[in-house]
């Protein structure tokens, strides 16, 4: 019974969370990037602390849920585009959609696994910088002996602030992906890059199942 009540509670909170972002109630532009980020992280914490999702046998389900909550806050297209660089301009719509899709999967493998390793550290919100439709929110994840600076870059899309880069300990994810993508594209072209990303995803998939 207790088991059941908890998921209802989580579901209810999730519902409130979603409603709070519907334009009819409050627009995110009014809330500001930091507040919006904070509430989405709070939702994420609910998933991470959910007893029903704990344990190594539920890893797949848990990570799917994490990805759902997290990626809702991401502007995946912008992130994929900036990571690819100027080569993006040469792609047609179908290619672009496909690239965003595989980029999302690639990111899910690493980023979601990192979040899943969260062990109850405190998150402190240090600073919010807003410049027009772009913003940076600086946070610090405080562990028992170390503090990891975690910055988010956001851009206003419609009425919501969406994340397009995560800077972990001063290392930008987009910048890091760009540095890997460009030499691969120089060597084996866009098709070669897509092949490599798909191979990487398949490898991670096989590892998880095997």
């Amino acid at each position: 019974m207790k088991y059941y009540g908890r998921s209802i509670l989580v579901g209810f909170l999730l519902l409130i969370f979603c409603l709070s972002f519907s334009p009819a109630y409050l627009s995110a532009a009014e809330i500001g990037p930091e507040l919006q980020l904070k509430s989405s992280i709070d939702t994420l914490l609910l998933v991470l602390r959910d007893e029903n999702l704990k344990g190594s046998e539920k890893i797949q389900l848990r990570r799917e849920r994490i990805a759902d909550v997290v990626f809702m806050q991401f502007n995946m297209q912008r992130m994929a585009k900036l990571s690819l660089g100027r080569g993006w301009r040469d792609l047609d719509t179908a290619q672009r959609d496909h690239f965003v899709e595989i980029f999302r999967k690639l990111l899910a493998k690493s980023y979601v696994a990192t979040i899943d390793g969260y062990a109850g550290e405190k998150i402190s919100y240090v600073k919010e910088i807003v410049k027009g439709d772009k913003a940076e929110v600086r946070t610090v994840v405080i562990g028992s002996s170390n503090e990891i600076p975690l910055h988010y870059k956001l851009k206003l899309k419609g009425e919501r602030w969406l994340i397009y880069d995560v800077i972990i300990e001063n290392v930008s994810l987009v910048r890091n992906y760009r540095s890997q993508f460009i030499p691969i594209m120089k060597k084996s072209g866009y098709t070669g890059l897509v092949k490599q990303i798909e191979k990487k995803i398949a490898l991670a998939e096989a590892k998880k199942n095997g």
């Binding site: 493998k109 690493s110 696994a113 990192t114 890997q180 691969i184 990303i197 990487k200 991670a204």
Partner: peptide, 8 residues
């Protein structure tokens, strides 16, 4: 984990 999503 840091390298789990790296192509290179």
């Amino acid at each position: 984990k840091m390298l789990s999503g790296a192509l290179d």
